[in-house]
């Protein structure tokens, strides 16, 4: 293995240095032979460049809970995927110190024909745990999700809230150093949201690091001690959640053109 050169302090959970992600996508939503041939006949190139994230840099020390806010399509999820190692950046460098657990897209690794129990095993193995480690955590995961007898029923019988509860429970019990959560709690009921919030706080006090993408400003204020605001792929502001949210709200009111950070 390469000697990894650590720049900056070793206390950082995540270092993002001048990262950009540009991906080229086809015009059609789903690529097919026909469109490829038609395009070839016209001598057109199939690509359209999307600059999802542009020159973003930040460090996150261990034990931070960082909320990421911004409009749809701001590049929040893309940033999370890059930190998780799912998408390689086009420019720049990301260093992640620690084990990452993700809750990015719902119902992941989950086969709806199988019971919750079998899916927990599948999800755990996908995350890189051994069978024994999953057995050790299984009771905790099942208890936390509070599915009762549904845990042994096929997941196609689950409501969307139950689905999310189980997915969340699996993700937080993977014993991660860094937890990445993308809009995970939208379908949970109030009681579960409180419980999940308590669990996330618990993780953060144990020097774990959490990234939370949310459109619910109250949960960012409540759970995070740090915040990032992204807009159209650019990092607009980094700082205290209250300040960042205030700036974001102001931005929403006055509109993009009239806004500059100096107005604050």
């Amino acid at each position: 293995m390469n000697a990894v050169t650590t720049t900056g302090s070793a206390g950082n959970a995540v270092q993002v240095q001048n990262v950009s992600l540009t991906y080229r996508t086809t015009f059609e939503r789903v690529p097919t032979f026909k469109t490829a041939i038609v395009r070839f006949g016209r001598g057109e190139r199939a690509v359209k460049e999307v600059e999802a994230v542009q020159d973003v840099s930040f460090d996150v020390p261990h034990g931070n809970a960082i909320g990421i806010i911004g409009a749809n399509g701001a590049g929040k999820s893309t940033l999370m995927r890059m930190i998780a190692g799912i998408l390689p950046p086009t420019k720049g460098r990301i260093q992640v110190n620690g084990r990452v657990s993700t809750l990015l897209a719902l119902g992941v690794g989950f086969n709806a024909q199988l019971s919750g129990r079998e899916n927990v095993v599948l999800g755990g193995l996908a995350a890189g745990l051994s069978r024994k480690e999953i057995q050790e955590r299984y009771e905790e995961i099942a208890d936390f999700a509070e599915l009762g007898e549904f845990i042994d029923m096929p997941m196609r019988t689950y409501s969307s809230g139950m689905f999310q509860r189980l997915a969340f429970s699996v993700a937080v019990h993977m014993d991660p150093d860094i937890l990445l959560i993308d809009e995970a709690l939208s379908a949970g009921d109030a009681k579960f949201k409180q419980k999940a919030a308590a669990k996330m706080k618990d993780l953060v006090t144990n020097a774990r690091t959490m990234f939370l993408v949310s459109h619910a400003m109250s949960s960012v204020k409540d759970l995070c001690n740090d915040a990032l605001w992204m807009h159209k792929g650019k990092l607009m502001m980094r700082g205290n959640p209250d300040e960042v949210i205030a700036a974001y709200n102001k931005f929403l009111q006055v509109g993009e053109d009239a806004f500059s950070l100096e107005d604050l």
Partner: peptide, 21 residues
């Protein structure tokens, strides 16, 4: 795993993600 460099022990410690050729 999409990284250009992946740590030997995949489940823990340091990962570096850089542009891939």
């Amino acid at each position: 795993m999409n990284a250009t460099r992946v740590d030997e022990d995949f489940t823990s410690s340091v990962h570096v993600y850089e542009p891939h050729r």
